[in-house]
Design a protein around this nucleic acid. Sequence first.
DNA 1: GACACGTGGCT
DNA 2: TAGCCAAGTGT
Length: 340
Amino acid sequence: MHGEAATLLAWYDVNARTMPWRSPPRSGIRPDPYRIWLSEVMLQQTTVAAVRAYFTRFTARWPTVSDLAAAQDADVMAEWAGLGYYARARNLLKCARAVRARGGFPTDYATLLTLPGIGPYTAAAVASIAFDQPATVVDGNVERVMSRLFNVQTPLPQAKPELTTLAASLTPQTRPGDYAQAVMDLGATICTPRNPACGICPLRQFCAAWDVGTQTTLPRKSPKPEKPTRIGALWLARHPNGDWLVEARPEKGLLGGMTGFPGMGWDKSTAHDAPPITANWENLGKIRHTFTHFHADLTVLAATTTAAPNHGMFQPVNPENLPTLMRKAYDLASGTLLKR
DNA sequence: GACACGTGGCT
DNA sequence: TAGCCAAGTGT
C-alpha cells in the first residue's frame, strides 16, 4: 500500500465524521447498500448538511429499496422537493425498480454503472463503500486533493482524466471503502477549496503543492460562461376554496416532474403566451431565482377566481412540496392574498 | 466535450 | 452583493 493511503486510513480511523448512512471504521458493521446508494445520489452536487434531513425522511418512509420501488412517483417527487436536480429523484425510482426486479443491488462497478442515475462516481462509491470493491471514487474533493498532492497545473475539466489516473494509482486493495471516504473527508475538512488547513494535514509530507506553495491556487479551473438573465412572469390563481391553479411540469427539463404555476417568458418548455385563466390580475412584484446556468427575474401576477382554466388544474398546494422558485412565488402570493 | 440541470451556505 | 462552491449524471 502507498504511504499516502496508509497514512490517510490511519487518520480516518480517528477522524471519520459521523453520518446517518455511514458505519464507523473498524466497527465490523457492513453498511446497508440501499442507504449507501441513497445517500450517494442525494450527495451529488449537494452538501452533507442539506442531505441529512432528506435522508432521514426518506429512510423512515421507505426503509428498503423494495419499499421505495413500490412508492408512487408523485410521493417521491414531493419528498425530494427543495433538494434540487430533480432528475435524480426520477432516476432514483427507476433505479430502485430495476434493483427490485433483479433481486438486489449489483456489487461490481461495471454493473452498477448501467443503472439509472448511477455514473462513474456513484458506481465507485457504492462498489467500494458497500461492497468492499477496490474502485476509485473521483469527486470534487478527490480532484482537489490529487491536484495538490501532485501539483497538477492543468485546469479542470481538462485535468479530469489525469486526476482520475493519479487517484487510481493511490487506491489500496484493502479497505477501499474507508479509503474513499477518507479522501473525501480530508477534502471536506482539511484540504478545502479556500484556506486549506495544511498545518494539520496528515498528507503534508507527500504534498507537491505544499512543497512549492501552490496549494491555494489548485485545482485551476477554466473560466465559466456568464449567466444570462431571463425575464418572465408566473400566474398564481387562487380559488376561494383555497386551491391553486397548478400544472404538472414535463418529465424532462427544468424542474422536470415537479408541480409548478403556469408562466411565460422564462422557460421555453412550458411557455404560455396568455394567462391560464380569465381573471383580474394583480401585479405583486418580482421574485429572483438563480439556477445553475441562468438568473430568472419573474413578475408574480395573482388573482382569486372561480373561472374555468384554459390549462392546469385547481388543486390543494402544500408549499413544502414545491421547488424553491415556485415556493418563492407562492410565499409572495399567499402572504399578500391572505392579508385581504 | 459542452451544456442542462437546483439549492443553500459562505465570503 | 455577486460569485463560488458542494460526495455528478444524462444527453
